[in-house]
């Protein structure tokens, strides 16, 4: 949980700093983090707001970037089928890349079950930390000229390689070989797709292809 939080705080700070340099107020940043609550989408929103893009274009971009949430939600929702609709809606509302990845690691330690309580706890913690980190970033923005000098964006890379590693070594439902083949396939596909498509579109295509590829290479 702790490394995930560090990655999260890093991205949140970076988001706040970028928002500040794009002339968004602290209040706007706070409301955005509370209502939209999606890292990469918020970065895009800020740059498009700064450019004065039409609202419809910003909403469409946000939808495209966040469409991976549809996949993550569908994937995790199976574990909460027996829980009430209210629990399901609450879990979906605060689900993010990070808590999704955490819960997939958790699943591997808990014989493939997740409790709504644990999920709400992780989600709420991430939600609050995100709001605070982005606001602090926005306040710090006044003092910092170039946010990239701290390598905060690298925190995300570190966080995901850690979570991916945990996923691969702990998911017992698949063989190590199958998982590594899928990782390799998705990585190579991403590398090429990102030459022709925006990152989030490449991500969706690569993920969908990776899932199909995984089904094919799984020993029957």
């Amino acid at each position: 949980m702790v490394p995930t939080l560090f990655g999260y705080i890093g991205v949140g700070l970076a988001m706040g700093i970028v928002a500040n340099t794009s002339h968004l107020s602290v209040l706007a940043v706070l409301i955005m983090s509370l209502i939209v609550y999606a890292g990469s989408a918020q970065f895009i929103m800020i740059s498009m707001l700064l450019a004065g893009s039409p609202i419809s274009a910003i909403v469409l971009s946000t939808f495209l970037i966040n469409s991976r949430m549809i996949l993550m939600s569908m994937s995790i929702a199976q574990y909460f089928k027996k829980d009430s609709l209210a629990h399901n809606i609450a879990i979906g509302t605060l689900l993010t890349d990070e808590t999704f990845a955490l819960s997939m690691n958790k699943l591997n330690q808990t014989k493939q079950t997740l409790s709504p309580r644990w999920m709400h706890g992780a989600n709420l913690l991430a939600y609050v930390v995100w709001a605070i980190a982005t606001v602090i970033g926005c306040l710090l923005g006044n003092l910092i000229a170039d946010p990239n000098q701290f390598g905060l964006d690298f925190a995300v890379v570190g966080m995901f390689i850690g979570l991916l590693y945990l996923q691969i070594i702990t998911d017992r439902s698949k063989t190590l070989r199958t998982q590594l083949i899928v990782v390799l396939f998705v990585a190579i596909l991403m590398y090429f797709l990102m030459r022709w498509f925006p990152g989030n579109i490449a991500l969706l295509i690569a993920t969908l292809c990776g899932c199909g590829f995984g089904m094919v290479v799984t020993p029957k």
């Binding site: 569908m74 994937s75 899928v182 990782v183 991500l203």
Partner: peptide, 12 residues
């Protein structure tokens, strides 16, 4: 396969 695929994709 979503977890392993999406985490790889986000990482790349």
């Amino acid at each position: 396969f979503v977890p392993v695929a999406i985490m790889t994709a986000i990482f790349i």
